[in-house]
């Protein structure tokens, strides 16, 4: 019951957060020069200042910023995210088309990160200060330091051009839920998940090593439990608590990472759309993507909070 109230409370708290995010984003976009109309004008010698003004009025890009914001806000509250000026598409249809692609990619990257990071983190903690630990720490450090566009290019070079296991372009004719897409998620997933994996692994290792020193571990061993059970049952659950925090914060960096990864792997997601939107000053699209990302990150953190309670019975939400 208290958990339900907690979730409800947290969900409500999204509202002011999103409001703040929308104000800041709106202001930032408007503080940077240029809008879709000036984009058109910049390369078109036929377009006079009068033409520009006329078009701006037609697309509702004139008037003071607060007025534009209020109009935008009013529309959003009725579920209308506006349209993309340059293409005339509904912003919501763009989001609906692209969001699943990014979610699939992000989720896969995230899962990949966790699947690699948690076992290696455990292993490194158990073999602390031994060769395996040193190697895995080195690999993790590299994982954090490698820029993901470079990693992506290397993976394409090796996986698609040398080994010819994958294709350079994802099979765009297949629907996202086709099983074969899983195979094509591997390389971008690795790219997007590597940095996350590296930092999760480091935290996993540290927190595991710390937990391993605790007395309940000795107590569990003193019960005669096999080491596997000691580590995977007793230590793991305790060390996961700090990993959950990190994994939640990593949602933001995975979202950010998807921007680059989608370009390199030609993945038709929201990240790629976001870059274009920024370059073309498509304010409605920028706003919508920012809001969705905001919701996503808040939800990830909420999920983390709920997971805490699941992992650690001492945590109760009032």
């Amino acid at each position: 019951m208290s958990l339900r109230r907690f979730i409800l409370k947290r969900l409500l708290s999204i509202v002011p957060i999103l409001f703040g995010v929308s104000v800041i984003t709106f202001a930032l976009v408007h503080l940077t020069p240029g809008d879709p109309i000036s984009q058109m004008a910049a390369t078109n010698p036929h377009m006079t200042a009068a033409d520009e003004a006329q078009m701006r009025a037609r697309y509702g890009l004139d008037g003071p910023i607060w007025e534009q914001y209020l109009t935008w806000m009013g529309n959003v509250l009725t579920g209308d995210f506006g349209e993309v000026v340059s293409s005339g598409q509904d912003v919501s249809s763009v989001i609906i088309a692209r969001l699943p692609e990014t979610i699939a990619l992000g989720l896969f990257g995230w899962l990949f990160g966790l699947l690699i990071a948690i076992p290696t983190g455990i292993y490194a903690a158990i073999k602390k200060d031994q060769l395996a630990d040193t190697v895995s720490r080195f690999v993790a450090l590299s994982g954090i330091s490698i820029p993901n566009f470079w990693l992506g290019l290397m993976l394409i070079l090796i996986g698609a051009l040398w080994l010819e296991i994958w294709t350079v372009l994802p099979p765009s004719r297949l629907p996202l839920y086709h099983p074969q897409m899983l195979f094509y998620l591997i390389l971008p997933g690795i790219t997007i998940g590597t940095a996350a994996a590296a930092s999760i692994m480091r935290v996993m290792r540290t927190s595991m090593a710390e937990e391993l020193n605790k007395e309940y571990v000795t107590a569990a061993r003193a019960k005669g439990l096999p080491e596997r059970q000691v580590v995977l049952k007793h230590v793991l659950r305790n060390s996961l608590i700090s990993v959950v925090t990190l994994a939640a914060t990593l949602t933001a960096s995975i979202v950010a990472g998807s921007v680059v990864v989608e370009v390199v792997f030609n993945w038709p997601g929201l990240g790629r759309e976001f870059i274009d939107a920024i370059n073309q000053r498509e304010i409605n699209l920028i706003m919508a993507i920012t809001l969705f990302t905001g919701v996503f990150i808040v939800l990830a953190n909420l999920l983390a909070d709920i997971l805490y309670a699941v992992l650690d019975p001492r945590i109760r939400y009032e």
Partner: peptide, 20 residues
């Protein structure tokens, strides 16, 4: 361990795993 020789720890609070 635990079967023929068992141990009672000094600080029960730390010897018990908080999450089980």
């Amino acid at each position: 361990r635990g079967n023929e020789i068992a141990m009672i720890f000094q600080d029960a609070q730390t010897a018990l795993n908080p999450v089980y």
